[in-house]
Amino acid sequence: MSKIGQAISEIQTLENISREDRWVNRLHPLGKLVLTVFYITVTVSFPKYELAGLAGMLLYPLAVFTVADLSFGDALRRLRVVLPLVMIMGILNPFFDREILLTIGRVPISGGVISMLTLMVKAVLTVLAGYLLIATTPMDEICRAMRVIHIPKIFVIVVLLIYRYVTVFLSEARRITQAYELRAPKQRGVHYKVWGSLLGQMLLRSMDRANDIYESMQLRGFDGNFRLGKKAALRPADFLWPVLWALVILALRLFPVVELIGRIFV
């Protein structure tokens, strides 16, 4: 599948998963959004040598993935975007930080190796947490949460519109590139002579389309407000879920839980 085709299918898959009828999906979006940001913040706040403490942070994604029956494979596939960059940043740590921090058996392990692993684990955990949010919360719900915390209307509407039209334009970009590739085989990308006209035509069509969209919005009574449908009543679970998890996450960060468990056995 082409890169663009893959992007379209990824968006559609996430959209479908997030609209499934699971109880995690039904929770209030604001709680999930805040919890996700909190989890990511706490995870990256672990010092660079604290690999053991980070292991405990796996609890949240693992538990929710299991309870919500989400696919780990889908989430880990998203690492292909993040991991190369993180690898570049971390891969040289073992060469620069050579102080031996730990010896397992007769194998000495330097600070650089540990800080590199810590960075990788952080990347995995934060990507998992991001996936958890978007796989259980549809985009319009995330936008509703943004409105609840008073993020300005203009911005939220623009985000919703971009999201609404992303698949439309991705499909158009796919059609254009496919047509081009069929007429220009053995060429890796678009030739420089048509850089301007290829994208320019698409851009002008998009502008016209924006005009049509504006007119149809006007005809349907668009007055600058965006209506996100009826508000569901808040349930106790909407509060309890983020608060309880936040306490667990905080406990894992503030107390050496993992180390204490280890001490029982050592």
Partner: peptide, 18 residues
Amino acid sequence: IPVMGVMGAFVFAAQMIN
């Protein structure tokens, strides 16, 4: 506002073309 939304989607898609 609609122009911003549509142009955002356009840039998103256009950035995927090589």
